[in-house]
Design a protein around this nucleic acid. Structure first.
Length: 407
DNA sequence: AATTGATACAACCGCTCCTTT
DNA sequence: CAAAGGAGCGGTTGTATCAAT
């Protein structure tokens, strides 16, 4: 497809949007919604392509944008999410209320990347740069090593938790980079091998040859010590659905889960999360595999969990209630805008949360559960609801300000 | 005061995926 | 089933602003 069909039309404006154009677009969408984006410019009286209108609305004019500088918490969350999701900016943005993928992408490229490098962390792999160098050496060397130890999946951990990958088999499973979020997730079979081969119901902390805690030592990710990031509880509750690349709050794992889902999920979440390093010295739970399903209990059995509000535990799983999902598209725009967009109106964080998280992919966020992502996000929104309303006000203030710049 | 470089942010481009015809 | 079109995503480029020289 490539270029949008409307872009072929002549005399379409490009470049920065003028306040007049913004006003036209806002007025149009306020009254009629965007509907088909390709028809928006014509209906709104704009010499722009629909794509440009969409972008302008989503990235700048949309009323629920927070704008302003990113907080440290937001930055931390972005880093943690990036460790899991990679450059999936839209997915990252979906978990940061009021932030756009573009905004986050820009922040990452202009600021966070640099900060991470300064702290000796490779922004792509979220590993120590020195480790990445070592890996490259190991990778290069391994190509010249015969498959002497083929069949063994053991890993020898050397002092200081550095690791040596002994088997080419393992390297084959993780070409280039074991933990790169951009690379394919570890296979279902791999984690079966890693965690549940020795016992049908096994306790991770005491399994040999490779228990979970040891395996986590792979990760030298320790943002807490390396860069002083706070350990955010948010990501800890997210597991990964390998089939659609969406994260799922852990609450939903209480029911039957197939290995196809859960193992890659665990792998992605644990392998790439900053919690991994911190968790590496602790037993964090039990994996049980039976037939096609795997149950997982991640226990609060270490100081790590207590110290950092790590809430994998199944204790609150049963309490969760599935939030009623609302498709944003079902919301009548005029109503939406009149009730939420207009300055001074109180924003119902409940609805905002739904708007932000009800995606076509069907991500289901729960409203309860201690320290769950949703809870955290709700907390963000609840400080107070007026915070969001305030951002709306700021938005409206910004429009006349913008006009002022040109007058 | 003018120039240059760095930075942040806005917007565009090309692509893929999905839906519709 | 294939083609066309719409929507969205991620990478890249363009531009405004600010600080340093």
């Amino acid at each position: 497809m490539g270029r949008h069909s409307c872009c072929y039309k002549q005399k379409l404006r490009k470049g920065l949007w003028s306040p007049e154009e913004d006003e036209k677009l806002i007025n149009h969408i306020t009254k009629y919604g965007h509907g088909c984006w390709s028809s928006v410019p014509k209906l709104a009286g704009l010499q722009r392509c629909g794509k440009s209108c969409r972008l302008r609305w989503i990235n700048y004019l949309r009323p629920d944008l927070k704008r302003g500088k990113f907080s440290q918490e937001e930055e931390n969350l972005i880093i943690e999410l990036h460790a899991v999701l990679g450059n999936k900016w839209s997915q990252i943005a979906a978990r940061l209320p009021g932030r756009t993928d573009n905004e986050i992408k820009n922040l990452w490229n202009s600021s966070i990347k640099k900060k991470l490098r300064q702290k000796g962390i490779d922004p792509n792999t979220h590993k120590l740069l020195s480790e990445v160098d070592n890996e490259e050496k190991v990778s290069a060397t391994s190509k010249n090593i015969e498959k002497a130890s083929e069949g063994s999946s053991e890993l020898n951990f050397i002092e200081n938790s550095n690791y040596v990958i002994e088997t080419e088999k393992l390297m084959d499973r993780y070409p280039n980079n074991m933990t790169s979020a951009a690379s394919a997730p570890p296979t279902h079979e791999f984690f079966l091998n890693m965690f549940v081969t020795t016992h049908e119901s096994s306790t991770a902390s005491c399994n040999k040859p490779l228990d979970m805690a040891s395996y986590l030592s792979f990760q030298q990710l320790n943002y807490g010590s390396n860069i002083g990031f706070s350990m955010n509880p948010n990501i800890n509750n997210l597991l990964f659905n390998s089939k659609n690349s969406e994260m799922i709050p852990h609450h939903h794992f209480n029911s039957s889960i197939t290995n196809d889902n859960i193992l890659p999920s665990i792998s992605n979440s644990i392998l790439t999360s900053p919690i991994a390093a911190a968790a590496s010295n602790n037993s964090i739970g039990t994996f049980t595999s039976s037939g096609s399903s795997t149950s997982i209990e991640l226990q609060r059995n270490s100081s790590f969990f207590d110290g950092n509000a790590f809430s994998w535990g199944a204790a609150d799983c049963g309490k969760s209630e599935k939030e009623t999902e609302t498709d944003p598209e079902d919301i009548k725009w005029s109503e939406y805008l009149h009730t939420q967009f207009l300055p001074g109106n109180t924003i119902h964080n409940h609805q905002i949360t739904q708007d932000l998280y009800s995606e076509k992919s069907g991500i289901q966020f729960t409203t309860q559960g201690s320290l769950s992502t949703t809870t955290w996000l709700q907390n963000q929104l609840q400080q107070p609801s007026l915070q969001t309303a305030d951002s709306y006000n700021k938005h409206f203030q910004k429009i006349p300000d913008a006009f002022g710049q040109f007058s």
